[in-house]
Design a protein around this nucleic acid. Structure first.
Lengths: 248, 248
DNA sequence: GAGTGGTCTAGACCACCTT
DNA sequence: AGGTGGTCTAGACCACTCA
């Protein structure tokens, strides 16, 4: 056939990009491409499939959405390592539960300073707009791969001088050990999202990469908010698990 | 300029598709495009932006990933209604918590029959491979819009004759009311995914649409599994919320 | 039947990573 | 410097929805 090809659903096998997807899934499943392995370049995948580059990329986006592969910006596509399991009902910090699963967690403080409470934050903290809050941004990695960016707000009244400490480890440990803070209630909210601009850049991923946003609010016995935390995860790096006994 | 354009980051404002995204976000935020409203067609959006259709689609995919818009296959793009809040720690069925939030839930049974337990399912149920299980597939909608497909497996020993009942309402109610089943423990797992083939088709969305998979296992006092449930949600239709008291 | 999104081609230049 | 992904153009045909 001459000119632009017809495409779509020939031989009843569905779109080309799904066929390529299936081929790659199989190669991942059978171990030809192990966890962490780098995929052939997009242009090389074209050769093997006769497809246009856009079509190849569609297959890759599909696999990315499914969490099977991820990309490092302008570097290449890689097979995703297994996800870590996160249980919001357990009050264990990142460093703890990641290590428990045989992985190596690291934390890096991107910046920490005092900010003026925005309207939204003031509502959460029950303070005046413009009141001082500690703001902390951290990047956390598993086995050396950055998996989340978090932005934490803390009321200085609860932990004066907090940001003068080393916060590259467990914030929970510092709050408990140095300030005697006891968290009795957690409010956790999750939703799929897209990682855009700053977040994507900090994680070294392309803007628009699928993610999972976890918002956590921790309260002490006096019902004061201890920690207001936004975690932006690479969506394929985490699996949320909740175990509950029914009250009745 | 002649021939293929240069694109990317002119005027320091980032890619074209993000500029278009921002424009649409604003129109949604300011109310020019209300919840449920239909967006202009892709070809019409081209005119207003001078972009190629592929670029317009990139902007739309971005908004879809962020949950702001959704599509009806081959019909058009629409502004997403607000999500419902789902709390896995509460043992309330879909029909209940959706109604509580002022929305109209509906359920439709796609098929129900007896199947032979696959290896994976047998492991969960602690039964032999090939043992009979009730399999149930339902489509659930909010305000008339299908938001999830669920596949439920139930052990016939726990609820003999279950699939002869009308299951277009609350399965929980039937299990409790007719069979005296009491669920004391829930195991819930969630992860972002892509909705593919059958699921996508049943929801009337394009294959590859972002989704959220919720897997729930309910156990009774004897620790027998009562219900093994896979829910495939449109990702923008749900927000997960967990409220926990810390044990210490 | 007109219009919509879904899929696909075949090029191009760019910013950035890697070596 | 060479290669990778990121962005973009300008077409095309198809399957489907909707009026």
């Amino acid at each position: 056939m001459i000119g632009p090809m017809q495409k779509a659903a020939e031989a009843g096998s569905g779109p080309h990009y799904l066929a390529l997807r299936d081929r790659l899934v199989e190669e991942i499943a059978c171990g030809a491409l192990g966890a962490g392995a780098r995929l052939p370049s997009e242009r090389r995948l074209q050769l093997g499939s006769g497809a246009a580059r856009g079509t190849v990329r569609e297959a890759l986006f599909q696999l990315e959405a499914e969490g099977l592969i991820y990309r490092r910006d302008r570097s290449g596509w890689y097979v995703s390592p297994p996800p870590v399991v996160y249980d919001p009902t357990r009050w264990a910090g990142f460093m703890t539960y990641v290590a428990e699963q045989g992985r190596v967690p690291t934390t890096e403080t991107l910046h920490k300073h005092t900010v003026a409470a925005a309207a939204v934050d003031a509502a959460v903290f029950g303070c005046a707009v413009g009141a001082p809050l500690y703001a902390l941004a951290r990047r956390r990695a598993i086995d050396g791969r950055p998996v989340l960016i978090e932005r934490i707000l803390v009321d200085p009244a609860i932990a004066p001088g907090l940001i003068d400490h080393d916060l590259d480890g467990s914030l929970t440990a510092v709050l408990t050990g140095r300030y005697g803070v006891r968290v009795v209630r957690n409010h956790v909210e999750m939703r799929p999202c897209a990682l855009i601009k700053d977040i994507a850049q900090a994680l070294g991923v392309a803007s628009g990469t699928p993610g999972l946003l976890v918002v956590r609010r921790s309260y002490d016995a006096a019902d004061r908010i201890v920690e207001y935390d936004h975690e932006y995860w690479r969506h394929e790096a985490i699996r949320v698990l909740v175990e509950v006994r029914t009250r009745d």
